[in-house]
Amino acid sequence: MTDDPDFLDDFFAAARKTRPEPGADLLARVQADALAMQPVAGARAAPARPGLWAQIVAALGGWPAVAGLATATVAGVWIGVAQPAGLADSLSAVLYGSETLSVDPIGAFDLVLLEG
């Protein structure tokens, strides 16, 4: 029996100096496993489920469509609130003309039934 406290340290030091190294065959096997099991690049970059606002924008057809919709909404509100006199007059002329136009779709429909 030894009382030398460094006695075992010599053995541990010897063990550290002679650390067993893996052979090339093992390294090749491990690397082959690593590559075979590696997730495909970019697969984990899949985006998370879009939020509510993103889904609304997508449903409307994307940002350009949202911009167009916003413009039309603002224009509609402005026309409704401000009612520029000139615009109202010219719009009336465009939409309704200067004379009343009468349309009688029912009459034409009856005619088709009679003929058929």
Binding site: A15, L26, V30, Q31, A34, Q38, V40, A43
Partner: peptide, 27 residues
């Protein structure tokens, strides 16, 4: 980086970790 698909990381991890794991298992 390995999980993100970096093949060089697979190689580096192999060379770095295999000696450690193998030596411990042998002990």
């Amino acid at each position: 980086r390995y999980a993100a698909g970096d093949a060089a990381a697979a190689r580096q991890l192999t060379l770095r970790l295999t000696p450690r794991v193998f030596a411990h298992a042998l002990r």
